[in-house]
Computed example of a mutant assay.
Amino acid sequence: MSGPNDNYDPKQVAALSAEALEAMVADAEAAFAAATTTADLKAARLAHVGEKSPIALANREIGALPPAARKDAGQRMGRARGQLNAALAARQADVESAELEAALASESVDVTLPVALAPEGAIHPITGLMDLMSDVFVAMGWEVAEGPEVEAEWLNFDALNIGRDHPARGESDTIFVAPAGVHRVLRTHTSPVQIRSLLERPLPVYVVCPGTVYRADEFDATHVPVFHQIEGLVVDKGITMAHLKGTLDHLAQAMFGDVRTRFRPNYFPFTEPSAEMDLECFVCHGASVGNPDAPCRTCRSEGWIEWGGCGVVNPRVLTAAGIDPEEYTGFAFGMGIERTLMFRNNAADMRDMVEGDVRFSRALKGEAR
């Protein structure tokens, strides 16, 4: 930058001429008008009004002019910069208004629509699975039967041929309702509902009994003191073990798809003959049996997983309900709902089902019908 020069003619300085300043203003106004967003306008401002813009560089030349010429050049520069500031402010107001309108349009809310005032819940998977399993039997023409959870000891044990000295009647397994003389318990299975059905319904009887049951069990990954069962009972003329096998195979396919099943002999006081129903392991499909190189933790390399108990109704149970075992026969079965849920979803810890975390229910909401 040169020093003061009394002979300096400001009209000969191109950057400070009226034509040059008008061209700078015109270019800046065109850039401002072309900006459609705040970011674009900021870039145009820096290019035409910023410290390194043409008009800022021209403004620095005024100081090098002689005093007589500075006034004229300063007035021209002031008018030019005033025009730029006014044009920039007007365009900034237009751009901000347009952006605000676009934001309001994209974020508009229809206040007439219903609003969820609370987080969405979900049917508990246990409840949903009980309904789903009950539907399988309702579709076959069966009825759903229910009964009280505080049950008479006679209905919970004696009528089911469970003798006084049976281990299941001890306090280590059964929760008795005080005082002891009332002979009432928290039902240990839903089998009392079957006895009530035989006492209250006309023959033949085809009922399925889902519900909550209670045991004096520890609370851990595979046991809870309050859990759920679904039991079925058929009493009719000519009922055999083959009818039982066909019924449970149909239930297994409805719950697990194309799965193999088997009956394994067992003992229950209320059925004779009795069996455990096993499902083919859905992890190894039997490939781990006798194969130490590929053990299966799910079935413990046995190839089968226990699902529930079943059998032909013991004649003593029919007699306790006032039914002639020479004329009628039947079958009964019982499965744990939690166990079925674990099989269907590979759930590892039964405690997740009772802790009340809605995320567990949402994750398995497919169990609800």
Rank of each mutant, 00 (worst) to 15 (best):
H48A: 05
H48M: 05
H48R: 04
H48G: 08
V49F: 02
V49M: 00
V49Q: 10
G50E: 00
G50A: 02
G50M: 07
G50P: 11
E51K: 15
E51T: 09
K52F: 02
K52Q: 01
K52W: 01
K52H: 07
S53C: 00
S53V: 03
P54Y: 06
P54I: 08
I55C: 01
I55Y: 04
I55F: 01
I55H: 01
A56G: 03
A56Y: 05
A56D: 05
L57P: 08
A58H: 10
A58P: 02
A58Y: 09
N59V: 06
N59F: 09
N59G: 14
N59Q: 13
R60G: 15
R60I: 08
R60H: 14
R60T: 10
E61N: 15
E61Q: 14
I62Q: 06
I62F: 11
I62M: 03
G63K: 14
A64W: 07
A64M: 11
L65M: 12
L65K: 07
L65F: 12
P66W: 12
P66G: 13
P66L: 10
P67Y: 10
P67T: 10
P67V: 13
P67W: 11
A68H: 10
A68N: 13
A68T: 12
A68W: 05
A69W: 08
R70S: 01
R70A: 05
R70M: 12
K71V: 07
K71I: 03
K71T: 08
D72P: 07
A73C: 00
A73V: 00
A73D: 06
A73S: 05
A73M: 03
A73K: 03
G74T: 10
Q75H: 14
R76E: 00
R76M: 05
M77L: 15
M77T: 08
M77H: 15
G78F: 02
G78C: 01
G78Q: 05
R79W: 07
R79D: 05
R79K: 14
R79V: 09
A80M: 03
A80R: 03
A80W: 01
A80K: 01
R81L: 14
R81S: 12
G82V: 06
G82P: 02
G82Y: 03
G82E: 01
Q83R: 15
Q83K: 15
L84A: 14
L84K: 06
L84G: 10
L84N: 14
A86H: 04
A86K: 07
A86Y: 00
A87N: 09
A87V: 13
A87P: 14
A87R: 13
L88A: 06
A89Q: 09
A89E: 13
A90F: 11
A90L: 07
